[in-house]
């Protein structure tokens, strides 16, 4: 027996409250981050990820209260992402009690940020989030030399903005600059509930030395297992299948264990 594959529930936070219909039986207040984090912890979640989707800048600091409250009560690792622009942002989130900070759009705008943050706080707490979308390669001219026929492009600003950057090359560059792990979301699959983009996940996992978290598209437990067995992901992230009470994290782990995947039970 060795290292377990991780299951990570992801929660959206807006202005200091967890949003997007988290629905546990018997939960007093579905927006309370400590209660929700505690529930996932009880179910055996290996880590938690909070994504801050707060639009207004004067409400941005409210995430710090969530981090402090969760850090005082829930003793598993948790990552915070969304709107991280500077080393100072990284510092504030870590000081509030986050274990890792995830950087997405700002890494594309300023790759040096990843190097600076990893240099200051260590690679172990810097996650680079990559939103990747398939590119149709209709002609040989569009293909990346030396790469297969499939390509993915990096998108930023929550998947709205194309960058023209090849996702796999970007992943390698982020690894080189000091990212400790990659949170890889398929924009084609996000919200579809038809499963991870396994080719994307596999391409990243096979070519990077750092861990890859698969994200985007999970609709059932089979999808989570596929992410590990076929995508070779080190961790799988999901939101809605856990929030709406369809499955508990414990059920997901029992299912994966049946499939021969090593999990923490």
């Amino acid at each position: 027996m060795s290292l377990a594959k991780r299951i990570i529930p992801c929660l959206d936070v807006n202005a200091g409250r967890v949003v997007k219909g988290v629905n546990f039986v018997g939960l007093r207040d579905a927006g309370d981050p400590v209660e929700i984090a505690g529930r996932y912890d009880e179910q055996g979640a290996d880590e938690l990820t909070f994504l801050d989707i707060t639009a207004s800048s004067d409400e941005r600091d409210l995430i710090l209260h969530i981090i402090e409250a969760v850090a005082a009560q829930v003793f598993i690792p948790f990552t915070v992402g969304g709107g991280v622009r500077s080393v100072n942002d990284v510092r504030r989130l870590l000081n509030a009690g986050a274990d890792k900070v995830s950087i997405n759009t700002a890494a594309v705008q300023n790759p040096q940020l990843v190097a600076d943050a990893a240099g200051r706080y260590g690679a172990q707490c810097i996650v680079v989030a990559i939103d990747a979308k398939r590119v149709e390669c209709n002609s040989d001219a569009m293909r990346v030399p030396g790469a297969g026929p499939l390509r993915w492009e990096v998108f930023t600003h929550g998947g709205r903005k194309a960058t023209g950057i090849d996702a796999l090359e970007w992943g390698r560059k982020m690894q080189e600059l000091g990212a400790g792990e990659i949170l890889l979301t398929s924009m084609d699959r996000d919200g579809t509930r038809v499963g991870f983009d396994l080719e994307l996940t596999r391409a990243f996992s096979d070519s990077l030395e750092i861990p890859v978290i698969a994200s985007g598209g999970v609709g059932n437990l089979e999808h989570l297992a596929d992410g590990v067995l076929h995508g070779r992901a080190d961790a799988v992230l999901a939101a809605s299948i856990f929030h709406y009470g369809e499955y508990t994290v414990r059920q997901a782990k029992a299912f994966m264990a049946e499939k021969g995947i090593e999990v923490r039970l």
Binding site: S2, A4, D46, Q124, L208, E209, I210, P211, V212
Partner: peptide, 16 residues
Amino acid sequence: DAQGHKLKVPHMGWNE
């Protein structure tokens, strides 16, 4: 690992 799959560094996660 024993199946020949690459193990990542950092060693990150829950181990026995």
